[in-house]
Amino acid sequence: MLQIAGDGATVEGDIRPWHSATFVGMQHQLSLVIQGEHAAPRAAALAASLPEAEFAIRGHIVVDLAVDSVVHDGPDLSRLSLCVLTLEDW
C-alpha cells in the first residue's frame, strides 16, 4: 500500500481476527497519512483507486477494501481511513 501511496506516506492501524462459518481472516482498520506537496490530490486519487487495487500479501487475499473517509488537514497533510478484510489463503 505504501508503494501505491508514494513518498511521505505512512500507515497506522489495528488488526483483529475475523471469521465466518467457512472463512478465517483478519479485519484491518487503517489510517493512511499522506504528507508533502500535493497531499490532497494524491489522497483523492488513492481514495478512487484503492478499492480496485490488487495487493500481494503472503498467506492472505484482500477480499474487500473500503475507504471510510478522507480528511484534508491543510494543503500538505491528508488522512484516509480504510477498512480492509483479508482471508487466509490456504
Rank of each mutant, 00 (worst) to 15 (best):
S81W: 06
A44R: 11
G59I: 15
V11R: 01
V71W: 12
A40E: 10
A21W: 00
L87V: 15
G13H: 02
A9V: 01
L32M: 05
I57Q: 13
W18G: 04
A53Q: 09
I34M: 12
V11C: 03
A45V: 07
G74C: 14
D14G: 06
A39L: 09
G74N: 12
L85G: 10
G13N: 05
P41S: 05
D89V: 07
A9Y: 00
A48R: 13
V63G: 04
L2E: 09
L80C: 03
S81N: 08
V70C: 14
S31F: 05
G36R: 02
A53E: 05
M26Q: 09
G59W: 11
A5I: 04
H72G: 00
H60D: 05
D14V: 11
P41T: 06
A40W: 03
A43Q: 08
S69W: 10
I4D: 00
Q29T: 14
T10L: 12
H72P: 00
V63H: 04
D7Y: 00
T22W: 10
A53T: 02
C83E: 14
A39R: 08
V71Y: 12
D64L: 11
F23L: 15
V11W: 01
H28R: 08
A5K: 03
W18I: 05
W18C: 05
V62T: 03
D68T: 11
T10A: 11
Q35H: 12
A21M: 02
E37F: 11
D68A: 13
Q3M: 04
S49I: 01
I57L: 15
F55V: 06
L50P: 06
W90E: 15
R58F: 10
H19G: 09
H60Q: 08
I34D: 03
V63Q: 09
G13Q: 03
L50F: 08
V33Q: 06
A66Y: 06
D89I: 06
M1P: 00
I61K: 15
L87E: 13
A44Q: 14
E52R: 14
A9H: 01
E52G: 14
A43F: 07
I15P: 07
M26T: 04
V84Y: 02
G13T: 02
G6P: 04
I4T: 04
L80R: 02
G74T: 13
S20H: 05
S49R: 06
L65P: 06
Q27D: 11
L50C: 09
V67H: 10
R58E: 13
A45I: 08
Q3C: 00
L2Q: 10
I57C: 12
A44S: 13
G36P: 02
L85Y: 07
A45M: 10
G36M: 01
V63M: 01
C83V: 08
I61Y: 13
V71H: 11
L80F: 06
T86W: 02
I61Q: 15
S20L: 02
E54K: 14
A45W: 03
A66C: 02
M1R: 08
V63K: 00
E88L: 10
E52P: 05
R16W: 00
A56I: 08
D68C: 09
D68S: 09
V67E: 14
Q29K: 12
V63R: 03
L2T: 10
L32T: 01
V70E: 14
D7E: 09
R42T: 05
A9F: 01
S78Y: 03
